[in-house]
Every structure is written in C-alpha cells, then in structure tokens.
Amino acid sequence: MSKRIKIDGSLCVGCGICELACSFNKVGEFGRSRSAIRVFDNEENDIFPVIIGQFTDVECTAKVDVVIGKHELDWCTMCRESCPAKAAFKELKNTAGIYCNMCGNPPDPQCVQWCPTGALMLVES
C-alpha cells in the first residue's frame, strides 16, 4: 500500500512550520520559496496548505474559480506565487523545480512530522 498526505484545512492554523521543515529537508536552509508545501491564506476564513507535485514547463492557462465554503476564490491569485511557471518557485541555482517526493524511506514526510495541529496526516492511499 502506498501512502499519501491528507490535508485537513480546517485544522490548519497557518503557522507555516511545514514550509520550513520541507525547505530544510530539501536544501538544508529555511525559506518558504524552497518548500514543496505552501500554506495559502486568503485572510478571510480560508487557510489551506497546498503540496506541490511534479510539474512541467508548460505555462498554466487555466483560470478557475474555486468555491470553498461560501467563499469564491480566484485560484490564480491564490497560487500565482507558487506557480511552477514563476521563477520564484524554482530552485534558483539549477532551475530544477522543488516538488514533493514523499520524503523518508519508508515515507515519513517532514511536513507531517512537524505539523503542530494534525492538519497534515500520513494515510494509506
């Protein structure tokens, strides 16, 4: 059975500890831009971590509005800065993208280990 990370946005407090744990695991340094998980917060009532999967060089052409609860979100606004098409989200030295590879063997992702509230959980997929 393979594992996956389950996200419960309702438990997320937006502390960003997962971002730092991930960036440390990836590059040995701390910074949101080197993390494969990014906590988005629309400063209303929606806070949710998004895990970055593998991506291609293709530019995003999607423009999708997402409804969470009663709130309609412009998805582009929410993910613009983590968009793989943006230089800001690439590993600057070799331009290779940072993405989640389920760190640990067997999988034991750092983000799940460090999450203080249980918003991130490792489950059987």
Binding site: V13, G14, I17, L20, P116, T117
Partner: peptide, 28 residues
Amino acid sequence: TRSLACYSCSMHCSHRWAISDGPYAGEK
C-alpha cells in the same frame, strides 16, 4: 471560526472570527 498562528508558532493563540448576528453581522 478557527485558530490562527503567527509564522513558525505552534502556540496559535489567535483566531479568525465572523459576526453572525446583531447590528454588526457580516463583520469578519
């Protein structure tokens, strides 16, 4: 409506809120 933390804090002592009744309903 939920607990809220400053960056890198596991204490998360703050909150998001929304007022649902009275003259200030809709305030969040």
